[in-house]
Amino acid sequence: MFFQQLAEGLGAGAGYAALALALVLAYRFTGIVNFAQGELALLATYVAWQLVDSGLPYWAALPVTVAVAFTAGMLTERVLIRRVESAPGPISPVVATIGLYVLVNALAALVWSSALRAFPSPFPDAPAGLAALAAAGLAGLVLGALALVVRHTGLGLVMRAVAADPRTARLSGIRVGQVAALGWGAASAVGALSGVLLAPSLFLEPAMMTGVLVYAFAAAVLGGFDSAPGAVAGGLIVGVTETLCGTYLAFVGADLKIAVPLVLIVAVLLLRPRGLFGTAPVERA
């Protein structure tokens, strides 16, 4: 029973970790918390559902989905964020992401209706606990590959340079705008993974990612908001904590689990604002 819960917590945590990592990536490239991150993932998940529903095998639909998400993220940066970034008042980019949140959510409801849809699991034949662990493993694999690219390629080096200091990067001849768009694309692709991993257990519907975004906030805050490994660790911790609280604390139960991330966020802000791995508290806006 306990190990079953632990496995499910890790499975859910992998999903939260992916979205948290997406938030952290977008934040590091532009200094903006992207409230529409979850909805971009939602859009990608619906695309995946549509593809699978029309007969494409799961493992073929997945790369297409990730590509769609990547493009959507890049477009968001180029079309929306870019324009407001230079404006005099930049919590406006965040307000713009909130506008995008509302818009994408409504569009999803318009196109795919508000009905609950069953989403295929990547491992349909495995028992629940094992499937959750396998999902976590899959997420780990993808995130590991991403880390390798960022750590050991020229492109990754340029991305880290931009994240560290955009102005110096600019003075070094790096086209910062393009790199930031690339960063948002990568963020959105990672975020899509979160939607695809969580949809089998949450069921696909327009409101699906709203709760997940809260968990991802908690995960990112716990990790320190500017640390990618922190976001991943934070996601797993949040997933396990939430699942165990829901099972073993009678007052919390299934329907109040969503309060767990709120309590976690407040606790982290009070006790250790820089999170587990962060360098400094979020500074902007």
Partner: peptide, 24 residues
């Protein structure tokens, strides 16, 4: 031109306060 284009034309500016990427 934008700073990155000017840098690509061979003008490098080392500012007072930076010029390095601290975490790298």
């Amino acid at each position: 031109r934008r700073p990155e284009e000017i840098a690509r034309l061979g003008v490098w500016h080392v500012t007072q306060e930076g010029g390095t990427f601290a975490p790298l």
